[in-house]
Design a protein around this nucleic acid. Structure first.
Lengths: 183, 183
DNA sequence: GTACCCATGTAAAGTGTTACATGATTAC
DNA sequence: GTAATCATGTAACACTTTACATGGGTAC
């Protein structure tokens, strides 16, 4: 079985709607995409170079100010075909979803560790903060039905991230309650 | 910042309760741990060798039948210290949770792709199957309160995985309903 | 002038997957 | 005998992160 290289398809997908620089693409991973995929610029720039060499994308150099060069990438016809192929291919593998905290909790619980509550509270705060952040974003971006309809893909991804965080937080608080009651 | 190497702490955690071979450890990733961390034997065996060299674990060779050699690993005192340190260290980073399907959906939706429904149905089947599998496991393993209390760590991890799958499935069916209504 | 962001890259190392390899044991 | 499972390893490759490196633009 061939390796996935999901990153290049995500870049392709982002470029399918508009011209973007490597820097812009990197920013996209800090917003909605970032909830479900991450990449650093050190991975993005080389990938763009490879994709350009393979004819999936092309770029034009633009000048900001007097010297600063930007490479504005666009998707090519060949790239569009690759993108649609990817979109239409069923994602066979389920995500692995590594979660260090959950396995840690598994062990800490088995061991009657006195730091259990502390570790849980710490994680609770982290997820609560992310949940609050996502809720703010949702209010900000999707204040009306029109905005939802116009950016339904974005809405879906944000809504899914929100649900996931809500459940995580309520799962954690359930565990915390049980510990406090039991001790 | 140093790299994580979560794998070795998971191996340590598993070995903290009982002697296990590399093979046994590999099996553990197919059961409860596998929902939240994965590793192949090709990663496990070399890691065990390194951990043994660093004094975190030790092993005894046991013979099965007449020839077959097994290395039964145990955690050392030094290893126990490392494990507790890890358990007590707050997990600062939130999990990345890469999900190729979600990003795919994000793009496919933006593009009004005719395969949208098909792609969603495919994913729905995958998650439904995993959900059913987890539910069977829960019934099988945790049929009474006593079993829950005796293996609370395991219960937590399975319960969390179940909740996650239920939400995923209901999220997908919500999207499907919306598409069918809209078309 | 300086802090923060824009903008692009490379190098090195760590993590994870797939493929290659081999042989013993057990249940049918 | 043969298929499935037990048992252990290495090699090659792919993916991801961290660190190194450089320079321009903008707002205060």
């Amino acid at each position: 079985m061939a390796k996935k290289n999901t990153l290049r398809y995500i870049l392709l997908g982002l470029l399918s709607t508009q011209k973007m620089t490597g820097y812009d693409l990197n920013q996209a991973f800090k917003d909605e995409i970032g909830e479900f995929w991450q990449a650093k610029h050190s991975q993005i720039y080389p990938e763009l170079t490879k994709m350009e060499q393979e004819g999936w994308i092309s770029y034009e150099v633009e000048i900001s100010g007097t010297k600063l060069e930007k490479k504005a990438y666009s998707i090519t016809e060949a790239g569009k075909i690759e993108l649609v192929n990817w979109l239409d291919t069923p994602s066979e593998a389920l995500p692995v979803n590594r979660d260090e905290f959950v396995v840690k909790l598994y062990f800490i619980n088995n061991m009657d560790d006195p730091h259990l509550l502390e570790v849980i509270n710490n994680q609770y705060k982290l997820h609560e903060a992310r949940l609050a952040h996502l809720e703010r974003r949702k209010e900000l971006i999707f204040s009306s039905q029109k905005e939802i309809d116009d950016n339904y893909g974005h809405f879906l991804i944000l809504d899914h991230g929100l649900t996931r965080e809500r459940d995580y937080v309520s799962w954690l608080s359930g565990i915390r309650d049980r510990i406090e009651k039991g001790s």
